[in-house]
Write a protein that binds this DNA or RNA. Sequence first.
DNA 1: CTGTTAGCGCTTTCAT
DNA 2: ATGAAAGCGCTAACAG
Lengths: 336, 336
Amino acid sequence: MSNTNLKKLSEELGLSISSVSKALRDSYEISAATKKRVLAMAEKMNYQPNPFASSLRRKKSITIAVVIPEIANNFFALAIDGIQLVAQQKGYHVLTYLTHENFKNEESTIKHLQGGRVDGVLISLCRDTDDIQHLVSLHETGVPLVFFDRVPERMECPTVTTDDYESGFKATEHLIQAGCKKVACLSLSNYLSITHKRMKGYEDALKKHQIKVDPKLIIQCTNDNGTNLQLIKKLLSRKDRPDGIFATVEKLAISSYYVCNDIKLKIPEQIRIISFSNLRTASLLAPSLSTITQPAFEIGKESASLLFRMIEKKTFGNRIDKIVLKSSLVQRNSSK
Amino acid sequence: MSNTNLKKLSEELGLSISSVSKALRDSYEISAATKKRVLAMAEKMNYQPNPFASSLRRKKSITIAVVIPEIANNFFALAIDGIQLVAQQKGYHVLTYLTHENFKNEESTIKHLQGGRVDGVLISLCRDTDDIQHLVSLHETGVPLVFFDRVPERMECPTVTTDDYESGFKATEHLIQAGCKKVACLSLSNYLSITHKRMKGYEDALKKHQIKVDPKLIIQCTNDNGTNLQLIKKLLSRKDRPDGIFATVEKLAISSYYVCNDIKLKIPEQIRIISFSNLRTASLLAPSLSTITQPAFEIGKESASLLFRMIEKKTFGNRIDKIVLKSSLVQRNSSK
DNA sequence: CTGTTAGCGCTTTCAT
DNA sequence: ATGAAAGCGCTAACAG
């Protein structure tokens, strides 16, 4: 077992526990010679401090939590990558929790985190989250909290997002300019700010081009893939089917692809698809899929950096940061 | 701050700290009535136990670590998903560490974990890892350790892998049967067991079909994408270029795609590619890419389950489990 | 059934 | 420059 502790070390060295502790933390109270001896012995005995004793005493955990809906998703995987990078630079540990788009999971996870297990929390809400009392409560216990991508709409809090409205607008306009007359919109959730903003961009782009917003072309998708496939199939099987699809998340674009394949709709000849997507290989593998690509890795880095500023109280007073990064439109299906 | 602790709770209730503690842990020593009172008050005061005090005292962390080369990778993202599922069922927390294919990172991470921060470790080695002293040392401190996918070749340890040799064999045979006469192999590392086994399968498949193994067709790739692109380009620009590529990891298949695109080699007419890959959308987006798909999610689940059996000492004596799961060959480019 | 007590291993005053 | 001692919040003997 991991059993070299300060006591054994100090006995071996003929020093007191506190001196050894100070030497290891490079305190100015300890002579250089002693420090050297201590360090050498610590190395020799393979000493590793007990993190729990330290955390208990110092009331900090050197750990942050990341709470996300899913991990097998290009956006979140890249975001985590960015978060980990910053955290490892800072010497922090990262606990990851998946909510699987289930509010109950999110709630209980956040509740657990109130015990002081982490010094800060990064979270992207799940699609069901409407009530954010659990997060208010966490915030009240003094745990710094940064939201990224999927952020609450009715809470004053630090956020890192992308330009969802503008991207939704540009995506829709891209389809219109490519000649689409009937553009459908696939939405993921009733609650998420990203969905609202992206859809608002969609609607405003239609209006700008004097196209009436048709509620029948706005599909509220679910968390069940099978159901979504049916909804999309129904949409695309109609006589007055759309000739363009704006998918607010990658998953729905993929589902649309399947359905088009299934019912033999040619992309992009008969229907064009644009989607928010972080499928890095899309350009290569799906030459007909235009995408709105979010800077997922940067989002992760920015979120973590902001969180650490808050943890280290390097952010001023009551200031609440709202960082907005730019997505990029990657056109592919316009080349006929 | 998170400041409701047992002391305050007990004062509020007029009970001793230990009684409250026992009540919360549902001890048989406490009367039902008292338990109810305690639970109600804990709820009311929003009590959350301090995990560090508990871990320090009980010498268990209810936490496991996952150490992987990268996260923005379909295989690992899916594996993590499976791991998280099992961990959350068990009520465990999951710390994630990325080595970024860098041995030094792996080494220092493992060293840190000797302090008792976690009750067990799941690891997939990085491509540089040859010396595994750091892992032997961790194992010696009594921390249960399970390797998955990228496992050490010279260590008796529990592992969860896929049938790498057979898959390499089948992949290569698939190309031969599709008519390829010169099959190249793209390898990731000199050290990894997965690479060795997959390549052995490749070589044996060639031999079976009376094709001589040509060292010039075996490309040792690096950790740098640019370099790999050059290596592949060089390979495919030769007059006697191969008409088939077996990529031992997904990344190298993608790179091959880029190069083929770049130098206008038609897939699959002029060259066929098969790869280990967990790109879930591949079937849809890349109809010309045949894949060996590993059951990544299952690997994650199996690894975590095995680890928990070890943590709970439900595994017999000195028994060392070696679990091998089956990959599936998904043919796509054979339909001409 | 409830309470007292002694630590877990570490950090941090405060003495010396 | 070093050491003694208190205590972080919790658990688990052991008493009663």
